[in-house]
Nucleic acid binder design. Structure first.
Lengths: 108, 108
DNA sequence: TTCATATATAAGCATATCCTTATATAGCTT
DNA sequence: AAGCTATATAAGGATATGCTTATATATGAA
């Protein structure tokens, strides 16, 4: 069962606009750090630190592929996760923009 | 629709153990500030400030009855609220304790 | 009106958060 | 091994958060 510490940590991780934005992107598809940097236009360390919080809160999982680390959504320990994800704004157009700029290709 | 500001504010309000505790109590039943103070054993201003955050985040509603203000759960603007509430720990025993001590009577 | 009780607000302090820049680590490629 | 790229960590500063004590406001009662 989830205790107060875990619940608070989860919601704390969700309680930041930048991280909600990142999670909304990951809802569309798995992304690596450099792609998220490109979309959000903040520094790479800032993104790394957000990813660490999301990982600690068990809201994302990571998968290394060469020098890239791909992050994807995973809130399977939270019964409410799916219903929260459904409320994320639609950011498919931002991923489309990324692809148009050809930047996704770098990581594949 | 909910935007990122509202979503972040909601989760920020949920991202604190004390507030999760308060919401868990309100899940059992409507309570006034002095009762919450009694259960949590923190100062009255601390509870007041938490209630303000919860109210601003639209997670509770308030109802004045004489000199008491009763708070109750209300996350109706959040589609995921019910599923989050279900994960709150059960604190019915704490309310029972309060009643045994006779402190609930003061407000009724 | 005066007093008592319930709640809210103000001010101040300790700690947490989020960003930045600088540096370290890890994996490719040559 | 040397150099390049992707990511992580460290350090520091500005702002936010959560608590406390002190004070203000609001309601009910005498």
């Amino acid at each position: 069962m989830l205790d107060w510490d875990q619940l608070a940590e989860c919601h704390k991780a969700l309680g930041d606009k930048t991280r909600l934005h990142i999670l909304s992107l990951l809802k569309v598809e798995e992304l690596c750090v450099c792609e998220i940097v490109e979309v959000l236009q903040i520094t790479q360390p800032a993104v790394s630190q957000h990813m660490r919080k999301l990982k600690t809160a068990k809201l994302v999982r990571e998968r290394r592929n060469g020098q890239w680390i791909f992050y994807s959504l995973d809130g399977s320990i939270y019964p409410f996760f799916e219903s929260i994800v459904q409320t994320f704004p639609d950011v498919r157009n931002e991923i489309e923009e990324l692809k148009k700029k050809g930047l996704r290709v770098l990581c594949n």
